[in-house]
């Protein structure tokens, strides 16, 4: 093979990975757009400018904490309190990132750092269900395309919400609030059909989260559910042959 042919093969694999990443990002986009629009509307009502609304999505890129942040700004909460609450709510991404980065061990830090910054509940879930790409040639392009698709729909939706205001009728936007939960379910069920123990791990995490959320902040309850539910995997799972 000439070097040109090799070059072309590389380009086509890369393109294929990018297309696949975008395709797998579509359900996230469907979930993000209405949620981002709602965030934009809410943040506008909280007194934030269009620039601030969009900047928060560009820099923070974490839905629940942005809703909380906008809400706290609206009632005049102090900066330090808002920042601490954000840390607590988003700390679960540390656990998720550790899991995802452990999959990407062989990959250069130049890729790992930007990919880690693109992690949200949704991109992490989709990326983890497609863990085989981590070992494939140009697999990083798959993850990057997935995250960029999610990122742009989030940023664009927030901006649009701030500009247009309440355009979606309330019944519809409320109905669309179920989208991301449905996506999580749609990701989990096929794995459970393959291996029942994945379902057991998830159910334990649900119960732990349900119990903890009675006593501590949502952020810590999700962290506890994820860590304790995941810990059952120490017994239930076999080592992944890598």
């Amino acid at each position: 093979m000439t070097s040109k042919a090799i070059q072309e093969k590389h380009t086509s694999t890369r393109l294929m990975m990018i297309q696949k990443g975008i395709a797998k990002g579509i359900p996230i986009m469907m979930g993000y757009l209405p949620v981002a629009l709602t965030y934009g509307v809410l943040a506008k009502q909280a007194g934030m400018s269009i620039f601030e609304i969009t900047l928060m999505s560009v820099l923070v890129f974490a839905g629940a904490s942005q809703f909380m942040g906008a809400g706290m700004i609206a009632i005049g909460t102090g900066a330090v309190e808002i920042i601490i609450a954000t840390f607590v709510l988003n700390f679960r991404h540390f656990v998720m990132s550790l899991s995802f980065m452990n999959r990407l061990r062989g990959i250069n830090l130049k890729w790992k750092v930007p990919l880690s910054l693109g992690l949200t509940d949704e991109t992490f879930s989709v990326a983890s269900i497609h863990s085989e790409e981590a070992k494939q040639d140009k697999g990083t392009y798959f993850y990057a395309a997935l995250m960029i698709t999610a990122y742009f729909s989030w940023v664009f939706g927030s901006f649009l919400g701030g500009v247009l205001g309440d355009i979606i009728p309330e019944t519809l936007s409320q109905s669309m609030g179920v989208a991301l939960y449905a996506m999580f379910i749609g990701l989990l069920i096929p794995s459970v059909k393959k291996e029942l123990k994945f379902g057991l791990i998830a159910v334990i995490a649900m119960l732990v989260n349900g119990i903890f959320s009675q006593f501590v902040d949502t952020g810590w309850a999700i962290v506890a559910g994820t860590l304790i539910g995941g810990a059952t995997g120490i017994i239930l799972l076999k080592e992944d042959p890598q």
Binding site: R92, V95, M96, L98, S99, N102, D121, F124, S125, S128, I129, V178, Y181, F184, I185, L187, L188, S191, F198, G199, I201, A202, V203, I204, A205, M206, V208, N209, G210, S213, A221, I222, G225, T226, L227, I228, G229, G230, A231, T232, G233, I234, L236, L237, K238, E239, D240
Partner: peptide, 22 residues
């Protein structure tokens, strides 16, 4: 054992994200 723990995290996270939030 830590690798097994981390490999189980996605399923646990999905569970915790679905319920009771839904």
């Amino acid at each position: 054992w830590i690798n097994r723990w981390l490999n189980a995290i996605p399923y646990a996270a999905l569970g915790a994200l679905i319920f009771p939030g839904v």
